[in-house]
């Protein structure tokens, strides 16, 4: 019973605060997702079809970010972009006060870059797995390059990339916990605060773990369904993963 009061809603318990934190966590992940997806697609396109320097740059971007700890990337962005902005601000207006980069934006930027680096590999693999003959069939019909991409390639890309992207999404969800270190009031940080006053670390961190676990399981379930849906009509596809 004791434990339940700690987790109850209202002034006595921490239930509502934790739930708020979970909301921030999910908001962070959901905001990051489109940024990372689009940037990743762009990087993949550059690697596959870009001019030589662009290709090298894109490859360097993806290998570098995949070789760095996410926590380090986060700190580099948080402090680096923050300092850069302030320098820019002072250059523009020397009298301006200093400005703090919000942890949320820093989190979106850092995790978005990481997601882009990883997802560019997934996109690239999917693109290479596409049957080139279908593109040619489109070209032979006089379709424009962008139209071919939109109506022929992208739908198939999504299907091929879905399992890999699903994996990355779960990783992204888990990585959001890192942003608590730069004081974003997400689930993890709320638990930290709760522990500070209640001195029940095991209880609260267990609840955090269970919450993440639940969200991840739900996502996996959902992704499995999406994959089955996407693979309708394909003979060899399906639940290979």
């Amino acid at each position: 019973m004791d434990w339940l009061t700690y987790l109850s809603f209202g002034d006595a318990g921490w239930g509502d605060e934790l739930l708020q934190g979970l909301g921030v966590t999910l908001a962070l992940a959901l905001t990051t997702l489109p940024v990372g997806l689009l940037l990743g697609l762009l990087v993949a396109a550059l690697v596959l079809f870009g001019a030589r320097p662009a290709r090298a740059l894109a490859l360097a971007f993806s290998t570098t970010l995949r070789g760095l700890p996410e926590l380090l990337t986060l700190f580099i962005i948080y402090h680096g972009v923050g300092m850069g902005l302030n320098a820019l601000l002072r250059w523009y207006n020397p009298a301006a006060g200093s400005l703090e980069l919000s942890p949320f934006i820093a989190g979106v930027l850092a995790l978005g870059l990481v997601f882009a680096a990883y997802s560019s590999e997934v996109w690239r693999g999917a693109w290479q797995a596409l049957d080139g003959g279908q593109r040619e069939a489109g070209q032979a019909m006089g379709l424009r390059r962008l139209t071919i991409f939109r109506v022929i390639e992208l739908p198939q890309l999504l299907r091929l990339a879905l399992p890999g992207l699903g994996n990355l999404w779960v990783n992204l969800l888990k990585d959001t916990a890192l942003v608590s270190v730069i004081a974003l009031s997400d689930l993890m940080r709320m638990a930290n605060i709760a522990v500070g006053t209640t001195k029940k670390p095991f209880l609260f961190f267990l609840v955090v773990c269970l919450a993440y676990w639940l969200v991840c399981l739900l996502c996996e379930c959902l992704l499995g369904r999406m994959e089955r849906r996407a693979n309708r009509g394909y003979r060899s596809g399906g639940a290979a993963a």
């Binding site: 990585d175 916990a177 890192l178 993890m188 095991f202 961190f205 267990l206 993440y212 991840c216």
Partner: peptide, 19 residues
């Protein structure tokens, strides 16, 4: 596999303090 490493670390390191 379904929980963040950071949360696992806190659970073990800080969580053990409760016991």
């Amino acid at each position: 596999r379904g929980t963040p490493l950071l949360a696992q670390l806190f659970l073990v390191y800080y969580g053990s303090g409760q016991f």
